[in-house]
Write a protein that binds this DNA or RNA. Structure first.
Length: 630
DNA sequence: CCCCCCCC
């Protein structure tokens, strides 16, 4: 009696592609599958079921992950009776034509049950050898809509050996799935039999089809140029071999923008390819794609794109951002340590208002400011300190290094594709949340790191400091001269004045700026020093904190020695600061002296060579320096 | 064929 409750023969019919039937089956085995990816988050956990239709069993049945909870809550267990509401056949072994049933929707009809009947395993090899090949795509388009029925009829008696002629083709299966798109070559140009890998695409190929997932899609943007107005969108395509950026303009923008959905898989044939522009495109491919009027895009059937990966990241560490050039694009992952409120700014260029939000993103070595704009800023919630991956984010150089999202930046919270998500989570929760790391977005904290190291002659050759805005540059050099007698001056005691006062030699000090006479003054540093490297020498000016760092005594102390005419003490202090190999961050700015334009170099920071963190990079840079002949 | 992504 119970036996009749199961849909006898349904498993074989499913395997042959007639997946439209909603069969009642018994779950006779459940097996968790260890994740093939090394994703430790557990999100990739899958269950493999052995199903019975009363006569036969089939063990290659994958339960959609959204139904994992049915097993984990003990609703679905051994001998449960289910109705299969949506199932797909997936090829798992192209050579041998082995298939797997993907269960996308099931309903539990009865949770607890006894084993029904005495089913035996479908001898799959027999089916295969008799000619079933789910990959085989017949190009004939005969009306064989009855084929699944005949297959069902023959398998109803559980006959395993089948005449291959009686087997339905994939086209038939598509019909039986209610899918009337005939994805064969000659009908619409999509040749699903000859799918090539994205990493083999090049501009010299004309006929190709790829099967790719949309990992990212931009908004539509309009533009105007000499040829008039236009619009475009771009998207990133991934398959198991790699990724590529694709762009659709105007007609193709209209045609494909709404059709392509992030996360979905498509067959794409015929598009233009050209060299990727690295300035705007960080996808890991030498080429980028432009959709044209010959381009054909067709959605992949549900379940058939499961083997296509989700998204590909090429992360660099936050520290490494310091070594990338401003305005370049990269992929970064980190933990959101803090989030600013939303702010509104007015663009200088367009006078338009924009919403923005800043995040402090941290990894194990460093932190950096990340700016989100518009909708991404409005929607972002960092209160739970999520791990966030940014793909295609732009590096800026305000106050060191910053990151700023652009139109094509993909933001993913807690991405399961990468082990970094879990690594960073564990690190942050255990220690990261309570430690302060160097911030690449704060010039002072990072010392020289955010500025390029140049030789003194490079500074001259490149004309640094000649522009209207100051240039910032780092120099590795030694102190070759330090003017002792003018190292400190008497400064106006008025807060924020800073002007030099004139000693009236009667216990009062006159400040011309304040136009006042004071009873006291403050000592202040303004050191003139010559620094040298192998390419030349340069006079620079060193104030306050940097001077104190260099000389190791406060301006007050040094001034008192000067007041006491303790020449030997001052000389000693200077001597200790001489011939030291240091990294100077300099501000170069042209100033007008009468008719002469002179570049003034002000020391912004002075640091000892920190070989532990900068040594390797510095050595590399120094080794790459060409000796400059005069 | 775009390539602007805004502010300090």
């Amino acid at each position: 009696m119970a036996n009749q409750r199961l849909t006898t023969g349904a498993l074989l019919r499913y395997i042959r592609g007639n997946t439209s039937e909603k069969a009642t089956l018994q779950v006779v085995g459940i097996k968790p599958i260890e994740s093939k990816t090394d994703d430790p988050s557990g999100s990739a956990k899958r269950y493999r079921l052995m199903l019975s239709d009363g006569k036969s069993t089939f063990s290659s049945c994958m339960l959609g992950t959204q139904m994992n909870k049915l097993i984990e809550t003990d609703s679905l267990k051994e001998n449960s009776i289910i109705r299969v509401d949506r199932v797909m056949v997936n090829s798992i072994d192209k050579q041998n034509g082995r298939v797997m049933l993907m269960l996308y929707e099931i309903e539990i009809l009865q949770s607890d049950c006894e084993r029904i009947g005495d089913p035996v395993a479908l001898p799959l090899t027999d089916i295969i050898n008799s000619g079933t090949n789910t990959n085989r795509l017949e190009t004939t388009n005969n009306n064989q809509a009855q084929a699944p029925i005949s297959a069902a009829a023959s398998s109803a008696t559980n006959v395993i050996r089948q005449d291959s002629k009686a087997l339905p083709t994939l086209d038939d299966r598509k019909k039986s799935n209610g899918d009337n798109r005939l994805g064969s070559k000659g009908t619409n140009g999509i040749d699903k039999e000859r799918i090539i890998n994205i990493d083999t695409l090049n501009p010299y190929m004309t006929k190709w089809t790829i099967k790719a997932r949309i990992s990212n899609k931009s908004q539509i943007r309009t533009y105007e140029n000499a040829r008039g107005p236009g619009k475009l969108f771009s998207c990133d395509l991934v398959d198991q071999s790699g990724e590529i950026r694709a762009t659709g303009f105007n007609a193709e923008c209209d045609k494909f923008y709404s059709m392509l959905e992030i996360g979905e898989v498509y067959y794409i044939a015929k598009a233009s390819l050209k060299a990727a522009n690295r300035q705007f495109n960080n996808t890991n491919n030498d080429y980028e794609m432009t959709f044209n009027h010959d381009t054909i895009i067709e959605a992949c059937d549900a379940g058939e794109g499961e083997n296509i990966p989700q998204v590909q990241f090429n992360f660099i560490s936050i520290n490494d951002i310091a070594n990338r050039s401003a305005n370049s694009i990269c992929d970064v992952i980190g933990v959101v340590k803090s989030t600013s409120d939303m702010q509104t700014i007015v663009s200088k260029a367009s006078q338009k208002e924009f919403n923005k939000r800043d995040l402090l993103l941290v990894d194990e070595k460093a932190s950096i400011s990340v700016t989100l704009w518009g909708q991404q800023a409005e929607e972002f919630d960092g209160s739970s300190h999520p791990v966030v991956a940014f793909k295609g984010i732009k590096i800026g150089d305000f106050n060191g290094r910053t990151l700023s999202c652009i139109n094509s930046t993909l933001i993913r919270q807690d991405p399961p594709e990468t082990q970094r998500t879990v690594e960073l989570r564990v690190w942050f929760d255990n220690e990261g949340k309570s430690i302060d790391l160097p911030d690449l977005s704060k010039g002072a904290d990072t010392g020289n790191r955010q500025t390029v190291i140049k030789t003194l002659s490079q500074i001259v050759v490149e004309g640094l400091g000649l522009g209207d805005k100051p240039d910032y540059v780092c120099v590795k050099g030694i102190t070759t001269l330090i003017k002792k007698d003018t190292a400190v001056y008497m400064m106006c005691p008025e807060e924020k004045c800073g002007k030099k006062v004139v000693d009236e030699n009667n216990g009062t000090y006159r400040c011309e700026k304040c136009n006042k006479t004071y009873n006291n003054f403050k000592w202040a540093y303004m050191i003139s020093a010559e620094i040298s490297d192998v390419t030349g020498a340069q006079w620079i000016t060193i104030f306050r904190n940097e001077a104190e760092t260099l000389l190791g005594v406060t301006a007050d102390e040094f001034g008192n020695h000067k007041l006491n005419q303790s020449e030997s003490i001052m000389e000693d202090i200077i001597r200790k600061a001489m011939n030291r190999e240091l990294i100077f961050k300099l501000r170069a700015k042209a100033e007008q002296y009468n008719d002469e334009r002179k570049i003034r170099f002000t020391c912004m920071s002075v640091n000892d060579m920190d070989w532990s963190s900068h040594g390797r990079r510095l050595i590399n840079e120094i080794n790459q320096m060409e000796p400059i002949q005069n």
